[in-house]
């Protein structure tokens, strides 16, 4: 079985990247062969203005992963992963090596919903546009919530 881990580096000693959509890399670990079989460079999604999670989830699905280990997954990425039948283990931090071992040993379990609202990985949500206006309310709006995606 292949596991995709969002990672800040390309090997087992790397830290798990807390962001799913804008993770630096995805390390694909094959449990049958007990080693990393692929590293996905997620730079394109990091640079994307919108929809990083959708792009990242698509790459992970195409790599044939059955489980994702990461920090947080937004609603749109969750929808794609869910449609692809990929299990999500979220709220994971620390080294990739430990994350994989904990999962294999049954110490970490898949979640059944997205771990955060849209855009929370970007530091400031869409509400930020209104920022600064004393009479407009605070600027640090926490994104737009629900994903509104549609599976065709």
């Amino acid at each position: 079985m292949k596991i995709a881990i969002s990672a800040q580096g390309t090997d087992m000693a790397s830290e798990v990247d807390p962001r799913f959509g804008r993770a630096r890399y995805f390390v694909i670990f094959d449990t049958d062969r007990d080693r990393i079989t692929q590293v996905i460079d997620n730079q394109a999604a990091q640079d994307a203005a919108h929809g990083a999670g959708i792009g990242a989830a698509t790459k992970v699905a195409e790599a044939g992963a059955e489980t994702v280990i990461t920090g947080r997954v937004g609603p749109k990425a969750f929808a794609v992963l869910h449609a692809a039948g990929i299990k999500i283990v979220s709220n994971i931090a620390g080294r990739v090596k430990d994350a994989v071992e904990n999962f294999i040993n049954g110490k970490a379990h898949p979640a059944d919903g997205p771990g955060c609202d849209a855009h929370s990985g970007q530091g400031m949500g869409m509400g930020g546009r209104r920022g600064g206006g004393a009479f407009r309310g605070g600027g640090a709006g926490g994104g737009r919530g629900g994903c509104g995606c549609r599976r065709n």
């Binding site: 994307a48 959708i54 792009g55 698509t58 549609r150 065709n152």
Partner: peptide, 15 residues
């Protein structure tokens, strides 16, 4: 450019 449509395997999704 906005990831409003994605395809993987035999699944196509629009956002």
């Amino acid at each position: 450019r906005f990831n409003a449509i994605t395809v993987f395997g035999e699944t196509i999704m629009t956002f």
